[in-house]
Design a protein around this nucleic acid. Structure first.
Length: 346
DNA sequence: CATCAGGAGTCTT
DNA sequence: AAGACTCCTGATG
């Protein structure tokens, strides 16, 4: 499988340009996290394609380090919901190069574009190397997206594909997304919608239900839809996206399995510092010592997971203390507030 | 005041 | 029955 070679230019543009181009669909790669930029090690990618050329442009987005919301303009997505069009750059990533090799692009002013008509660059040796490294970057990006979604699935006990969600799952996802991006609570506006309804909604529908963050929710859902679509499209055994398949199957088994334990939940949060590092983080990962930075937030997330709206840190900490006897969690030797230690660190 | 420790009854799976 | 939830009293910083 080859990447469409014209993806290279957009990535270059990503590194150098902050300008937006009027004729983009939206494909966004950002470093860091919507919630916590400091970790900065993971890539967040989201795209939404129009089905008219130019099909996709990667652009640098304003969703920068430290920002708390995904890019607004992500929402520039198609009104008609064709699964294959949700994420045209994913499309490019997973599609065999069926189209004829494109001509070199002559116009330097032209915005970098993944041309839907199959136009692009023919590459020399350098280009091939670039292509390879770009492929690695994209693989990494997609892998990170899949991992993030996998984690959320585990934590929420929902399936990765939004279309399968019932109304309860939708509410959970909404609550979770609100907390992740620190959005105002608007879940009520989406009550009684199942996943199918949600997926059928346009950005405008989202905006109508929530002026404040409908577009953000729409964009976030778009990522999930795209990932689900990609998962479906990836043939089993395709190891292109590092661990992607395993991650998914892992997530599936987790979702359909036993209820998650609190200690597992905490560990999952700790494994995603770029998403949850603001509320819980390792003090000493080797020794399994962690600190709950935002007790209310962690309790709220746990409450969402367990469908316990009344959950608070008082109750959560009581549950943690039950682990003392069982030898799962203890207080570290030097006891500190909000600091605990896994007895058997990974 | 928030956190911590632990008893005890209830609920959920 | 296990694990978690809930409510509680009392201690600590």
């Amino acid at each position: 499988m080859h990447l469409c070679s014209t993806v290279i230019e957009p990535i270059k543009a990503l590194a150098t340009s902050q300008d937006q181009h009027p004729s983009f669909t939206s494909a966004v790669v950002t470093m860091g996290s919507p919630d916590r930029g400091q970790e900065g090690s993971s890539l967040h990618l989201s795209c939404a394609g129009f089905n008219e050329p130019p099909l996709t442009v990667l652009e640098r987005d304003t969703w920068e380090l430290g920002d708390t919301k995904p890019p607004r303009h992500l929402s520039a997505a198609p009104e008609r919901a064709l699964p294959g069009l949700y994420l045209s750059c994913f499309d490019m990533l997973v599609t065999e190069d069926a189209a004829p090799r494109p001509e070199p692009r002559k116009d330097p002013e032209q915005c970098p574009v993944i041309d839907s008509q199959g136009l692009g660059l023919s590459l020399g040796l350098d280009g091939q190397m670039e292509e390879r490294s770009l492929e690695q970057v994209q693989s990494l990006v997609v892998g990170e997206v899949l991992k993030d979604i996998e984690t959320a699935c585990k934590l929420l006990n929902i399936t990765p594909d939004p279309i399968e969600w019932n109304a309860g799952n939708v509410q959970k996802w909404m609550l979770w997304t609100e907390h992740l991006y620190r959005l105002p609570q608007v879940g009520k506006a989406f009550q009684d919608l199942n996943g199918k309804d949600l997926c059928a909604m346009s950005e405008e529908d989202f905006r109508q239900r929530s002026m404040q963050c409908g577009d953000v929710l729409y964009a976030h859902l778009d990522i999930w839809k795209s990932a689900a679509w990609m998962k479906e499209r990836c043939s089993p055994g395709d190891s292109k996206f590092t661990g992607g398949e395993e991650l998914w199957s892992e997530a599936d088994s987790f979702c359909s399995g036993q209820p998650i334990h609190l200690w597992q939940f905490l560990r999952e949060l700790l494994l995603k510092p770029h998403s949850y590092g603001r509320c819980i983080r390792w003090l000493n990962k080797e020794k399994g010592i962690f600190k709950i930075e935002d007790s209310a937030h962690v309790a709220r997330l746990w409450g969402i997971r367990k469908n316990r709206p009344a959950m608070n840190y008082d109750k959560l900490s009581r549950s943690i203390r039950q682990y003392y006897k069982k030898g799962i969690i203890r207080k570290p030797d030097v006891s500190q507030r909000l600091v605990y230690q896994f007895v058997h660190p990974v």
